[in-house]
């Protein structure tokens, strides 16, 4: 890869992380403000007020919203003029290392068995980089914190169990309780294979949350009937939104994945000019 292009990709990656961990997307902040408007429980109101004040302070100070700055998940689109080369992965990893020092990000990435921390948020297979063709060269980052990620699940339903999908989503949130820092955003992947359902669930978290289709709305309402509320202290909003992505699947299977995301639904996109 052209060295100046790989430098620009690393820069864009570092800028995207800096923005993602300090500034929430406007649709997410608006959803939290709307939740506060609709809330009558004083404890829940207090939690949402703290969250909104925290967002404002992080934006003003340029400091991370949350001390768990996550593991790096990165989505790249390449225009027709840029071939997919190994150098792309190296450039993104370089951007992650730079952001770790500059923002700073908490070094969270460890070897899965020895638990040795690399200190720079990279390691084998990390950052997770997903590439697909596009019109422009874009780098989208999704720093994923552990509290909510640990509550995520994949269930392989029977083809006859389509009606159980809402139950899978609701039980996932119920069993997670206060742990994923609600109000959550849920990415739901339906269909595909075991792994594709999970990938779709994660990608769904990148979608704007200010609009839901009728199915997503019905799932969101079912979750909110639990009344867990902000931080599991009770209240009207347990989920800010549910976003669903689908893929065709084997006639004998029905994979359903739920990727749980805390209220800090962090993601940011930067574009790279290609000469």
């Amino acid at each position: 890869m052209d060295p100046s292009l790989s430098l620009r990709i690393a820069d864009a990656t570092a800028r995207a992380f800096a923005r993602a961990v300090t500034t929430l997307p406007p649709d997410v902040e608006a959803a939290l403000a709307k939740a506060l408007d609709a809330e009558t429980d004083p404890v829940a109101r207090g939690e949402l007020e703290n969250i909104l004040e925290n967002i404002e302070l992080a934006r003003r100070s340029g400091l991370p919203l949350c001390q768990d700055t996550g593991v790096p998940v990165v989505y790249v689109t390449l225009p027709p003029s840029v071939p997919l080369e190994q150098g792309l992965y190296a450039a993104v990893a370089d951007g992650v290392r730079r952001a770790t020092t500059a923002v700073p990000l908490r070094p969270n990435v460890v070897d899965p068995l020895t638990r040795h921390n690399s200190g720079d948020n990279t390691g084998e297979g990390m950052p997770a980089v997903h590439v697909r063709p596009g019109d422009r060269l874009s780098v989208t980052v999704l720093p994923k914190g552990a509290g909510a990620e640990n509550m995520s699940r994949v269930e392989m339903l029977l083809p006859s169990e389509v009606a159980r999908i809402p139950e899978v989503v609701v039980r996932c949130v119920l069993e997670a309780g206060a742990r994923p820092c609600p109000p959550v955003v849920l990415g739901v992947g339906i269909g595909g294979t075991f792994d594709l359902a999970a990938a779709l669930a994660k990608e769904a978290l990148l979608e704007p949350i200010d609009a839901m289709d009728p199915f997503e709305t019905s799932l969101c309402e079912a979750v909110n009937r639990l009344g867990l509320g902000p931080m599991g202290l009770g209240g009207a909003t347990t989920a800010l939104a549910v976003k669903v992505r689908r893929a065709a699947c084997h006639t004998a299977s029905l994979p359903v994945a739920v990727n749980v995301q805390c209220w800090a639904n962090r993601h940011a996109t930067e574009y790279v000019e290609v000469a």
Partner: peptide, 13 residues
């Protein structure tokens, strides 16, 4: 006493 999860900037302030 419960403090709001994720509010690292508010806490630090």
């Amino acid at each position: 006493l419960a403090f709001t999860g994720g509010c690292a900037a508010l806490a630090a302030a």
